[in-house]
Simulated scan of single mutants.
Amino acid sequence: MALGHRVRGHRARAVIGSIAALTALGGLLTGCATDSAESAEGSAQTVEVRTELRAMLPGELRAESARIAVGTESGYPPFEYTNEAGRIVGFEIDLFDAASKRLGLKYNFVDMPWNSLIDELYAGNVDVVAAAMSDTAERQIESDFVDYYNDSDAIMVPAGNPQGIKTLADLCGRKVAVLGGDSTQQIALQTMNQAECQAKPITVMPFDTDADALAQVQAGKADAELTQWSTGAYNAKQVGSGDIFEVANTEIINPTPLGFRFLKGDVEMVRAYQAAVQSIIDDGTYAEILEKHDLSVGALTTATINNQP
Rank of each mutant, 00 (worst) to 15 (best):
T285W: 03
T250K: 14
V270A: 03
G265N: 05
L258N: 13
K221P: 10
M269A: 03
N235T: 11
N249G: 01
D243N: 15
D282T: 03
G240S: 01
I280W: 10
D282P: 04
D266L: 12
V217S: 02
E291T: 05
D294T: 08
A276L: 04
N254F: 12
D266M: 09
I281P: 01
D283C: 09
T231D: 01
V247C: 07
A219N: 02
G259K: 02
L290F: 10
F262E: 00
Q228M: 15
Q218T: 13
Q216H: 02
E251V: 07
M269L: 15
D223C: 08
N249M: 00
H293D: 08
A236F: 00
K237Y: 03
E288L: 08
P257L: 13
G232F: 06
A224P: 13
G240P: 00
I244Y: 05
I244M: 13
W229T: 04
A275D: 10
S279T: 01
R271Y: 04
F262G: 00
N235M: 14
N249F: 00
K264E: 13
Y273E: 05
Y286A: 06
A275L: 05
F245Q: 03
Q274D: 05
V217R: 04
I253V: 13
T250C: 02
Y273I: 13
D283M: 12
V217N: 02
T231W: 01
Y273N: 07
N249D: 01
G232M: 05
L214F: 08
P255C: 01
V270Q: 09
F245W: 08
W229R: 14
V239E: 02
A275G: 09
I289N: 11
Y286Q: 02
Q228D: 14
Q216Y: 02
F245Y: 15
Q228K: 15
T231E: 06
K264T: 08
F245I: 02
A224C: 06
S296I: 06
A224E: 03
H293K: 06
G265M: 06
E268N: 10
I253W: 05
E246A: 00
N235F: 14
G242E: 08
E288N: 07
W229C: 02
E246T: 09
A276D: 04
A219L: 10
N254E: 09
T231M: 09
D294W: 05
G284A: 03
E268S: 14
F260N: 02
Y273H: 13
Q228S: 15
K292Q: 10
S279K: 01
T256D: 04
L290S: 12
V267M: 01
G265E: 04
T256M: 15
L290C: 10
P257S: 13
Y234S: 08
F245K: 07
I252F: 05
A287W: 09
S230I: 12
P255W: 08
S230Q: 09
Q228Y: 14
E291K: 11
T231G: 03
Y234K: 10
V270F: 10
K237H: 12
I252V: 14
P257G: 06
L295C: 06
